[in-house]
Design a protein around this nucleic acid. Structure first.
Length: 248
DNA sequence: AGCCAGGTCTTCG
DNA sequence: CGAAGACATGGC
C-alpha cells in the first residue's frame, strides 16, 4: 500500500511490471512520475563515467522521484532531522492514526482501511502535548510553527511558481528547515531535480566514491548541483539507495 | 549501556 | 564566517 495525503494505491509486481491500482489513477500516475523516461536518466548517469554512479543507476533503475504533496513532504522531512528512518516512519504513522481521518476502500473486493495524512486544520487543532506524545521530541515546536504559518497564510502552492533558488530561500526561512530538509522538500515536494540533498549517506558517497574534497555540506551540495544540473536529484537517489543497501 | 540517527539552531571565538 | 554544543527520543 502506498499513501499520499488522503489517497491510497495498492501496488504489486507482476513479472517485470509494477501494477498500481487506485481510485485515483490520474493522481498516482503523476505521483509515481510515470510520464518521465527514466531510461534516459540512467543512460545519462552511465555517461558520467563514474563507476559508483553507473552501478547505482543500473541497480536502481526502478527508482522514481515521487511527486509528493509539498506540505506533507516538508512536514515529514522536518521530522527526519537528527532522527533514524524507522522512528521517522513511526512518528508519521502515529500522526496519521491519531490526527488523520479513517477511510475505507475496496480493491478486488477486498476491503482496506487506512488513515489519511492529516489536513492543516486537523493538525492545527492539536496541542503541544499531542506532538510530544507522538514522539516529535524537540521538533514539536518546529512542526507546530510550520503548521501555524501555513494556517495563517503561508502558501506552498504560490511557491511552486518560483525558480528553484528563490523557492529554496523561502523554505530556509521556515524554522526547523535547514539546507538538507529544504533540498529534500525541493526534490520530493516540488520535483526540483536540480537539487542534491546531502545527508550522512551522501557525505560517505562524496568522500568514498566521488573523491570529493569539500567538508561543508552546503558546499558539497552546490558542487554536485553545478556538476549534475537537472539530473542531480535522480543521481542522488541512485547513490543514496546503493550506499544504504551496501551497509546492510 | 551507550552511541547514533536522511540536521538545525545558537553561541562563541 | 567556522567550529562546537545542545537538542528529545528510541533504534540497534
Amino acid at each position: 500500500m502506498v499513501f499520499s495525503v488522503d489517497k491510497v494505491a495498492y501496488c504489486r509486481n507482476e513479472g517485470k511490471n509494477a501494477v498500481v491500482e487506485s481510485d485515483d489513477c490520474d493522481y498516482f500516475y503523476n505521483f509515481f512520475d510515470f510520464d518521465r523516461d527514466y531510461s534516459k536518466i540512467v543512460k545519462a548517469a552511465e555517461n558520467e563515467k563514474i563507476d559508483a554512479l553507473t552501478i547505482a543507476a543500473r541497480e536502481g533503475k526502478g527508482i522514481r522521484i515521487l511527486n509528493q504533496d509539498s506540505f506533507e513532504a516538508l512536514f515529514s522531512f522536518m521530522v527526519s532531522q537528527n532522527n533514524n528512518i524507522p522512528r521517522i516512519k513511526k512518528i508519521i504513522e502515529k500522526t496519521c492514526e491519531e490526527a488523520g481521518e479513517n477511510r475505507r476502500v475496496v480493491f478486488d473486493g477486498q476491503e482496506v482501511t487506512f488513515n489519511t495524512f492529516p489536513s492543516i486544520e486537523r493538525l492545527s487543532a492539536k496541542k503541544e502535548d499531542f506532538f510530544k506524545q507522538a514522539g516529535y521530541g524537540y521538533r514539536s515546536s518546529f512542526v507546530q510553527g510550520f503548521v501555524d504559518a501555513v494556517k495563517s497564510g503561508l502558501n506552498l502552492e504560490e511557491y511552486k511558481k518560483l525558480p528553484t533558488e528563490d523557492l529554496r530561500k523561502k523554505l530556509l526561512k521556515i524554522r526547523g528547515v535547514g539546507e538538507k530538509v529544504a533540498d529534500c522538500a525541493l526534490l520530493f515536494g516540488f520535483h526540483r531535480s536540480d537539487s542534491f540533498p546531502v545527508d550522512t549517506w551522501i557525505e560517505k558517497v562524496y568522500v568514498e566514491d566521488l573523491n570529493g574534497k569539500e567538508k561543508d555540506r552546503k558546499k558539497i551540495a552546490s558542487e554536485l548541483v553545478d556538476r549534475f544540473k537537472e539530473n542531480s536529484g535522480y543521481y542522488q537517489q541512485y547513490l543514496f539507495y546503493r550506499k544504504r543497501s551496501l551497509s546492510k
